[in-house]
């Protein structure tokens, strides 16, 4: 599903290149659950942003579903966002002016999903995440964990094939974090959704099937976990 070859990323200031990523080459297959780990400033978020096409690598090739991402035009990329990629953020990033219901609905509107279908999908998601009673609340009326659940529900609404999550539990207590990790695992196992997450927690990483360890912009370890 994802092919990275010799990805490099640097920022130049005053003529000096500051490398964030170097020679990152890896393949991620459909159905994998990958955790990216590493010390702060290692380049994890940068790598995830590149995977999510939010940033462009300065060098290297990136193929997403057999398509060269660097040659993708704006329209194509929007198409990918609408149909294949779901994002989950550490800071949730729900739209403050929209209710829970409307936040989940937004991607479906962009995808032009019909009214009835939309309603049933949202109802389904609300049900699944136990948020039915909260559907008319605004984000600032929810706890952090609840907000993240909405964030995940929103990412799932468009039925993506991959979820990219940057420290999805970074702002949460361990109990809530565990709940979300279990949810990810379930989505990965039952629905076959590919998941790539950035995490600092060894424990969270254990829910996945593979760990990419990054330090100073270089992939140090690539560990495949065997299911317990």
């Amino acid at each position: 599903m994802i092919e990275l070859k010799n990805i490099e990323k640097y920022y130049s200031s005053k003529g000096i290149k500051h490398y964030v990523l170097r020679h990152v080459t890896t393949t991620i297959k459909q159905g994998e659950f990958v955790s990216i780990m590493g010390p702060s400033g290692a380049g994890k978020s940068t790598l995830l942003n590149i995977l999510g096409m939010l940033e462009e690598p300065t060098y290297g090739t990136y193929e997403f579903m057999e398509e060269d991402v660097t040659r993708l035009n704006e329209r194509k990329r929007i198409e990918l966002y609408r149909n294949h990629i779901g994002f989950v953020f550490q800071a949730y990033h729900l739209i403050d002016e929209m209710t829970v219901y409307e936040n989940i609905e937004a991607p479906l509107l962009y995808k032009k999903v019909g009214g009835a279908e939309r309603a049933s999908r949202i109802a389904d998601l609300l049900d699944r995440f136990n948020m039915v009673a909260k559907k008319d609340l605004f984000p600032n009326q929810l706890s952090g964990g609840q907000q993240q659940l909405v964030g995940i529900a929103r990412a799932l609404a468009a039925q993506p094939s991959i979820i990219l999550a940057d420290e999805p539990t970074g702002n949460l207590q361990s109990a809530q974090a565990e709940e979300i990790m279990q949810l990810f695992q379930k989505l990965n196992k039952e629905d076959g959704i590919t998941i790539i997450q950035v995490t600092h927690s060894e424990k969270n990483a254990q829910y996945g099937s593979r760990i990419l360890n990054i330090a100073d912009g270089v992939v140090k370890d690539d560990i495949t976990l065997t299911a317990v």
């Binding site: 198409e79 994002f87 990033h93 991607p107 929103r154 468009a158």
Partner: peptide, 9 residues
Amino acid sequence: GVKKVLGSS
């Protein structure tokens, strides 16, 4: 930002 990531043009 969020809307763009959700697929808004």
